[in-house]
Design a protein around this nucleic acid. Sequence first.
DNA 1: CTGAAAGCGCTAACAA
DNA 2: TTGTTAGCGCTTTCAG
Lengths: 350, 350
Amino acid sequence: MANRRASITDLAKQLNLSPSTISRALADHEDVSEATKARVRDLAAALNYQPNQLAAGLRRGRSKMLGVLVPHIIGNFFPQVVHGIATEANLSGFNVMIFQSNEDEVQERKNIELLLNAQVEGILVSVSKSTKSFGHFETLRNNTVPLVFFDRSIEGIEGKSVGAVVLDDYQGAYEVVEHLVAQGCTRIAHFTGGLHLNIHRNRHRGYLDALRAHGLPTDEELTVLCEMSLEGGIQGMQKLLALPQPPDAVFSSIDVAAVGALQVLKHAHIRVPQDVALVGFSNEQFTSFTDPSITSVDQHCELMGRTAVRLLLELIADDPEQPPVQHNIVLKPKLLVRESSLRQPDNSAS
Amino acid sequence: MANRRASITDLAKQLNLSPSTISRALADHEDVSEATKARVRDLAAALNYQPNQLAAGLRRGRSKMLGVLVPHIIGNFFPQVVHGIATEANLSGFNVMIFQSNEDEVQERKNIELLLNAQVEGILVSVSKSTKSFGHFETLRNNTVPLVFFDRSIEGIEGKSVGAVVLDDYQGAYEVVEHLVAQGCTRIAHFTGGLHLNIHRNRHRGYLDALRAHGLPTDEELTVLCEMSLEGGIQGMQKLLALPQPPDAVFSSIDVAAVGALQVLKHAHIRVPQDVALVGFSNEQFTSFTDPSITSVDQHCELMGRTAVRLLLELIADDPEQPPVQHNIVLKPKLLVRESSLRQPDNSAS
DNA sequence: CTGAAAGCGCTAACAA
DNA sequence: TTGTTAGCGCTTTCAG
């Protein structure tokens, strides 16, 4: 048994045809006779021929690959988005190469290079937490390679081949606060992450605006900047309980910190939601499994990934016939009310 | 501003050098003068030159890409493994292409083809649940492309470029049962998934053997085949409670089903762990967050990914100088005792 | 130390 | 309907 992989040239020789005919036959090109096509296909199958994408890509100048750059692939959100990305890309015959920045600007920059080297036709990025300068994205903009940010975007990068798909975090936060107000909460605290990230900034803005709209206090001490971790939530809640006037609701910008808060509250025998209502953000799986289950905001992770790919593909195609595409897509969040914020049990018919 | 990407030929022309010299200079080859190297590097930087991996790969016959084929990238386990894979691969200068079978054998087969087309140098697979025939893997074996299974492996595929990294599910299950016995449980039930998957089969075997070793009943009714979902756990627990002689412990092959069981038990005012102890498998994040928290078995997901990559790279290198590598690696699981199975609170000094 | 030449496997004018 | 030719961008002998 021959072991080297068969090439178009091999097929051509064995069938006394030219490589071009083979190529056309395999591509089911219309001006190849059915008879020839059949012969080619049969031999290809017999030799277990595998087309070489590298060669085809090089020749065509189109690799059929997309690059994905995420902070990491752990937790709930990014895996789900990546799942959506991979699924949607494959649907259009694109393969996906994935890199992780590990929330590090240097790695992010290096990975962008690697993706460019791999000749990806477009890049999907969610910006690292630590990224403070954006030269590497600026470079990309001049580089023919379309770019779509998702979730964590950066402002100020515009261009006809740059886009973004983000969640309306502002609105999500706004709705959370309105819900809490409807539940009778009047002193609502907020856990936030670093405000240089658009997601936390927008959630914080939504939180403040909603409070103001309802004439509720926006004391600075009610906004707690904390590590976005279980531990961070624990510390944040302890800080809030130590306040002369503790809150009767906490809206955390991240679910896991809400769990930390819940643990502290239970430990202190403070009832949730009766004494303190609790809301997270992201609809992580565990929010359904805690006791009480935690109200959260769904981000449509998979949809975000799919939408980002569709946008990117449009930017790649850049069809001048088509109407110009919307470069900034904002997805609407969905508030999922669970036990941790529901004071009137029978509220379903409202 | 020129917009096309600069190539080695471009650099060569601008510097009046041959492409070979440029290539060597960029590779920091030793027989290029420092002066020349410097000139080349400077111009490369100025033109923002990006090496074309496709071309280099084609020429070298080495793509520097690895293929990953997983059932999906959702939940806790696969994302973490993929994280480990990507991290470890990047460390060795390999890029990673990811495909999902969506637990479907047809897609699995197609994706293997796609990976081959993409000229990956090796493939990492976790077999789809529905895969019942293994021709596509057999084909691979003859195809020069090394293959490493992880977690969900299949028996009977051997060869010098095939390997597997799995968890010792048998031992994990065995330890779970021993722990439950030590806690005083005498009638231990088990939730299992489809037994054609090695993981469930081995966990089930470990469960049975441990029971026998302790002279405990292994009644068939104590093994419940259920959907590996929350709903599945709920139904499974209901079935167990309806038994004439219900169990005093449940060991679920999957964490999420343990949560379902927990919900049923709480609802029926049966105390966990006093009346029924509960153990899961996989150490999903939410097992720490339920109340009580759920004892589980950690699978070292990230380590599994990294180990699989290291094995694959060794198979790819296939260095005849080196001692032959161990093709089947078994990772030891780690039992994490939490509240759901701990009847003696102060047990830490044992 | 540098250059010339060939070719990885494929595709796409252009010819026949 | 098929063949000829050239070349994508790079690396690597082999020759200077």
